[in-house]
Design a protein around this nucleic acid. Structure first.
Lengths: 211, 211
DNA sequence: AGGTTCAGATAAGGCCACTTCACAGAAACC
DNA sequence: GGTTTCTGTGAAGTGGCCTTATCTGAACCT
């Protein structure tokens, strides 16, 4: 599969060098001399990875990465700069960069890095299909979501404590819902029969809580 | 609300200074002289934020942040070091750090940073309750998940093209499922009646695809 | 104009999910 | 020991969800 790269680099000579090197590595490169042009291209065409110079006239690479992430959320983002500071590196990573490279860099190593970024973003689907059915069905119920969120803050818990915390008077009703959560793989009981989240349960709680 | 800080810093004098300063700011601090001790503490007690020195004997701060994230996934992570390089900063951020600070730093500014990290991690829940019911119910069906995933790669699409792509022969059956997706707020139609994802739809596709 | 495809809307039937009820054994308490 | 609480299990009833069938008007093609 041919990697589609969106390149934004204002230095003409370096830009052409990068295009040659990456095309020699079998990638398809769309080269732009500024961030604004790259953003316009992303609105017309899909790319796998954006390779953005940090310091360009007009929009910076960091500003461009934010805009590109909105246009194509699954695009990889790699920032490059000759003037790296810890602060700018941290800022770029916080704003969603997958990688931050300081110039000068070896062109072959760059291609390897781009392939690694793409491979890491093409992870396995997070759920097997039947697993997804169960997990999302479990989460579509408010009682179950509340139970999970309480457990993400106060684990481990006993059955009746959790039942009262969620505010359900009919314990058999609550037991049915906990059983669904157990069958979906989001919840388990420890050796003392106390309820705790599974790894997948913790992960889904992070989604529910907005992280 | 009192912020609970887990501090790992091998330099005795700095550790005591940090404890004094953060307690003076109204925070509750558990101080450890190494990462291993901090990890043991996190297994016994819940903390809001871990403040970890990067370079310590034994486990490094980066190694410790990975272990702490597994024990308490919603704990904030702040790394500090006097020997910052762009590479270590990028590595820490990639491994989940919320902030990366270079020494020396102003102690008042540190407290402000910790409060900001905590405030950013206490974002609003991502879904209103009824919205969550609809979204997760929509996602609990395999036909609907497939429709969303196709659209995340090939938007905009016409009804019958999408129906054939998902492999459903009965178009009225497929129409029912697209209607559920529209009602859940994950899918919409543009002015030409072509189907496209909403922002929330794109976000959930990222979850489905493992990002 | 007639035929085909598209893109819906509606209703009915059957299946699935949830609630309620009855019950049970175990553990804790007095 | 007797009573209360805890923590489950299974069955029946009810409402919601999904599939199927029927139909429609619009657009396109010959």
């Amino acid at each position: 599969m041919t990697l589609k790269i969106l390149l934004a680099e204002d230095d003409t000579e370096l830009r052409e060098t990068l295009v040659d090197a990456l095309e020699f590595e079998g990638m398809a490169v769309r080269a732009c001399d500024c961030a604004e042009t790259a953003i316009a291209a992303a609105q017309q065409e899909r790319f796998d990875i954006a390779l953005l110079d940090l310091v360009m006239p007009g929009m910076t690479g960091i500003e461009a990465q934010t805009a590109l992430k909105q246009i194509q959320p699954d695009m990889g983002l790699v920032l490059t700069t000759a003037f790296a500071t810890v602060d700018t590196a941290v800022e770029a990573m916080k704003k969603g960069a997958d990688e931050f490279l300081t110039k000068p860099f070896n062109l072959e190593a760059l291609a390897t890095t781009l392939r690694r970024v793409q491979a890491q973003r093409q992870t396995q689907p997070q759920f097997a299909d039947e697993e997804a059915d169960k997990i999302f069905a479990a989460l579509s119920n408010p009682i179950r979501r509340q139970a999970l969120l309480h457990l993400s803050h106060h684990a481990p818990m006993r059955f009746m404590d959790l039942c009262r915390k969620v505010g359900i008077e009919d314990h058999t009703k609550f037991n049915f819902h906990l059983r669904q959560l157990k069958q979906s793989g989001l919840l388990q009981q420890n050796v003392n029969k106390l309820y705790i989240l599974t790894n997948k349960g913790r992960q889904m709680c992070q989604l529910l809580a907005g992280e």
